[in-house]
Design a protein around this nucleic acid. Structure first.
Lengths: 363, 363
DNA sequence: TTGTATGCGTTATCAG
DNA sequence: CTGATAACGCATACAA
């Protein structure tokens, strides 16, 4: 006869039945003891003993099918090599962990199909909810987001009427902060190294740069604008192209990875930073403090956005009927050595220095 | 009466029953059509239509309970901010994706309890297998690894007799490569900035450094050895401490993050790199090519280790009866500007230059 | 407290 | 090809 109700699972590992049989009790009693609810002292002893002997470990999948939850939350980002996502992830992780859940990260590689596939697969109940930070948003993508089977919070720009929880920043204004700072420092030939214009952040930053220059009455020289992608190598290459045909006295970069690439290009070309060319990155990641000189960078509050996104998600998991919410985090500028010309080898002034700063690289 | 067999799931979302009822067929037929096996043209049409109308999406948890697999593979690493794990992750991802599975990453933060908790939770059937790269290994930890409910592959050093699939490298030898290189370049006062000695990699690198110096007959000056952790900030601080009390003519760092920190410390202290102090990192990550000057670095084949680990895991998932396997990846040295003193401002020689190299930072 | 029986949503088996 | 039904492993309402 076919196995009717054996005591072990298909792959030979122990189940509640194994434990129950061994302890000489029903599976209900076994289950209760294993979950710490009820059971006479004697039963508890027997079950615990049996469980230990067979090395019982509960099947989380089965448990989830029953409880309708997995205790898992996912974060989908484009490029896990970008430190901005690391910061965001850390912030999310701490919130998620505090709720007794576990955070899983999935790198989509920026391929939209990949991201929608994720929503259509992983999200189909493997996780209790997910936070996704899409770099491009198509209608298809948006549709998948909207009728996701599990709660979703989007970090990043989204159409105004999209009924999805959303935490955003204003990178357009953020770029403006960088330009204002540089203009105030007397720079006029300000260059811009951006990522692809067909991405949401790329388009926003481009608009921000142009409007900021206009606001200051500076005519934009298109030779001072160059585009790569949002990674180091392309940023460096783009900066090299720009430097080969123009002479900026400042460079704004669409993120810190690009800025580090640009810094490399500048130093390799013999330009002194910040004396000849000031440099401002964006995202204000760890990376900005690793370079020499350290990078000024526009903070888009990635940790804060992550934290808020996690909170929104947990709230929605708890109550699916909540209306779609939208939160915004304001950008700010972290000024460091890469955009601050200071007198060198000059005795410290009697008044306290404006801010602790590492020495300049130039002599 | 209590709901006997409704057509929708507990949370009101459609199930096979919903679709079947709407299409006027049995759940068996519905399931078959939904899975693309069998079904008359008419049935297929009706079911597809019904599924589309109600927006049916299969419950992956239920499916997994039945199929005994999730199609998910997890990678557990200590610090996702360390680029070495990013490289490893990318390699693993490509192998895993090629098998039609999805990779999830979990950052343990190096806390052992966290990692064992992961094994005891997530691994309890939420994933088909996992790759874990522990930085510390206790007996407890090892035990959890050994009798993990799902296939596990460990990347990193493990006791010789541990019955666990294992991909390792020899960082001890790796440090030796760095020292050899520096000694050959005429450096004698070689310093070492390491991570914690109670970690597996920390201990191995320490041993490697000491034995390498001994091999060259160089007496170790303990003032030239400093310890932080494996991250940037601590690396920089450790290098600063070292530089405050000793005058190395070269620095070996236990990973690239530390090396970048050391580079910052050196430049901030006005030391010229590599002329006054040569610098060699370890892991040969992207980061090594981002700095100026670019970092020489000992490659521990992190991508290769990741790739192999993923292959081992997939094999074991396919056949659990495989004996424990152990693979080793040899270290190699990538020489870049940070450890190569070249004549500056000298006309290019008639013969081709030894290798394309970015200009030195010093003048 | 304990055991029986049923459901979680899906897939697989086995008659019809 | 189709439909009823039995698993998958666990949790729990209910009756004893």
């Amino acid at each position: 006869m076919g196995r009717k109700r054996l005591q072990e699972s298909a792959d030979g590992r122990p189940t509640v039945h194994t434990v129950a049989a061994r302890a000489g009790v029903s599976i209900a009693s076994a289950s209760r003891v294993l979950n710490g609810v009820g059971g006479s002292p004697e039963t508890i002893r027997k079950v615990r003993e049996a469980a230990a002997e067979v090395g019982y470990v509960p099947n989380a999948i089965a448990r989830s099918l029953q409880s309708q939850r997995t205790g898992l939350v996912a974060l989908a980002v484009e490029d896990i090599g970008n430190p901005v996502y690391v910061e965001m992830m850390r912030a999310i992780e701490s919130v998620v962990a505090a709720s007794g859940r576990q955070l899983l990260v999935h790198a989509t590689g920026g391929r939209i199909d990949n991201e929608t596939a994720l929503l259509r697969r992983l999200a189909h109940r493997y996780v209790d909810g997910m936070i996704v930070s899409p770099i491009r948003v198509t209608d298809d993508h948006l549709a998948a987001l909207v009728d996701s089977p599990v709660p979703v919070v989007v970090v990043g720009q989204l159409p105004a009427d999209a009924p999805v929880d959303n935490v955003r920043t204003d990178s357009r204004t953020g770029v403006g902060l960088a330009v204002d700072h540089l203009v105030a420092a007397g720079r006029r030939r300000i260059g811009f190294v951006n990522g692809p214009l067909d991405t949401v952040p790329g388009a926003a930053r481009d608009a921000g740069f142009r409007s900021a220059l206009a606001r200051h009455g500076i005519a934009l020289d298109e030779r001072l604008v160059e585009i790569g992608d949002f990674r180091y190598a392309a940023g460096r290459a783009a900066a090299e192209r720009l430097l080969a045909r123009a002479e900026p006295d400042a460079l704004v970069c669409a993120n810190d990875l690009i800025a580090v690439g640009a810094l490399h290009a500048l130093l390799a070309a013999g330009r002194r930073v910040p004396d000849e060319v000031a440099l401002v990155g964006m995202d204000d990641t760890e990376l900005a403090q690793m370079t020499f000189p350290q990078l000024s960078s526009v903070s888009l509050g990635s940790a804060e956005r992550g934290r808020r996104a996690a909170e929104l998600l947990l709230q929605r998991i708890a109550d699916a009927s909540l209306p779609p919410r939208r939160e915004q985090v304001a950008p700010s500028l972290a000024v460091r050595a890469s955009s601050t010309t200071t007198p060198l080898f000059v005795p410290a002034p009697a008044e306290p220095a404006p801010a602790p700063r590492t020495p300049e690289v130039t002599a």
